[in-house]
Amino acid sequence: MSSIADNIRSVTRRIQKATKAAARADGSVSLLAVSKTRPAEDLREAAASGQLAFGENYLQEALDKISALSDLPGLEWHFIGPIQSNKTRAIAEHFQWVHSVDRLKVARRLSEQRPQDLPPLNICLQVNVDNEDSKSGCRLEELPELAAAVSELPRLSLRGLMAIPDPDQPEDRLRASFRALANGLDQLRQQENVNGPLDTLSMGMSGDLELAIAEGATLVRVGTAMFGARDDSR
């Protein structure tokens, strides 16, 4: 059975190979370990191998891990799950990144509740690129207005976009979904009333990270290929 360290090396090689194949600069794609449902000991093992960025979906579970691993320097916590309005304060106080902002109400609360002694909270807007009824995210046509409003909030830094396309669709359609998100970010960069680094495309997972990198991903979210099959019984 492969260790987490072995899996990290394997995923890193995949990212490097895909980056080279896409004629992109070495190091232009970062790895986010999707650690939901994983015990803190697994994250500690990953951190010992140099993986410091972790993505969590469930707030209380994440807060428990943040506390349990507070002795480790340099960990970076990303909230990647759906956001309920009553959870925004804890997210604003404990995370460095939020990938799943899809409405202005949530963004305003995160900005208002971000502690003044912390840097601005890094934000990705979640886009429902396939217009799936079961998925969170704003529609592409709503993106210009939402991005303009979010980018004006004082305690947030609009870093880019995130999407979770349907992984079961044919490869050409999946590639088109990734391309649509990349085009959406390019258009925001041309929009005069949108401020922020706009340097992040959070897309691609264990099974499709090569396609995502080919279409411009700067951050891939990998869980299964790093930690093995997860327990989704909760």
Rank of each mutant, 00 (worst) to 15 (best):
S206W: 06
P154K: 14
A182Q: 15
V34P: 02
K36N: 07
V129K: 03
A163S: 15
Q113H: 06
P120I: 03
E93I: 01
L125S: 08
P82S: 09
R109K: 15
E132D: 14
E76C: 00
A40R: 06
D6T: 07
A53K: 05
R155C: 12
L32A: 00
I80M: 05
L201C: 13
D232Q: 07
T224A: 07
V98K: 01
F54E: 05
A149N: 07
I4V: 11
R89F: 03
E112G: 01
I8D: 07
A217Q: 05
L118P: 06
E112L: 02
L104R: 02
I91V: 04
D199W: 15
S28N: 03
M205S: 13
G27V: 04
K20E: 13
R189C: 10
T218V: 06
R179D: 12
N86D: 01
N193P: 04
N122D: 09
I164T: 06
Q113P: 05
D231Y: 09
G74A: 00
I83A: 09
E76W: 03
G50F: 14
G55F: 12
R9M: 10
P115F: 05
G74T: 04
R139M: 09
L69E: 04
A22G: 13
N57Q: 10
E152L: 14
Q187D: 15
S233P: 04
L181M: 12
R108T: 04
Q60R: 15
R108Q: 05
V194P: 00
D102I: 01
L188H: 14
D42S: 11
F54D: 03
H94R: 04
A225E: 13
S151K: 12
G50A: 11
P39R: 03
T224M: 09
P39I: 01
I8H: 05
G74F: 00
T224Q: 11
L188M: 15
Q96V: 05
L153C: 12
D208V: 14
S30E: 12
A62L: 03
A180F: 05
G207M: 04
R108N: 02
R89E: 04
H99E: 08
D117I: 07
I80D: 06
N7H: 10
I66P: 03
D133I: 02
Q126V: 01
H78S: 03
V29Y: 08
K20D: 13
D231R: 03
V150E: 14
S157V: 08
C124N: 11
S233T: 15
D130S: 08
A47V: 07
L153Q: 13
D71P: 02
G50C: 11
Q190W: 06
G184I: 11
L104M: 02
E142P: 07
L43G: 00
R103H: 07
I164H: 09
P144E: 06
I164V: 15
F79Q: 00
K87D: 03
R179I: 06
G27R: 08
R234I: 12
A217R: 10
L32R: 06
T12W: 08
D166Q: 14
A176I: 04
Q190H: 11
L140K: 07
E45D: 14
P119C: 09
C138E: 07
P170T: 09
L161T: 08
A46T: 00
D102C: 01
V106P: 01
I66F: 00
A21K: 10
Q116E: 15
T19I: 08
D6Y: 06
L201A: 13
L153D: 13
E132Q: 15
E145F: 10
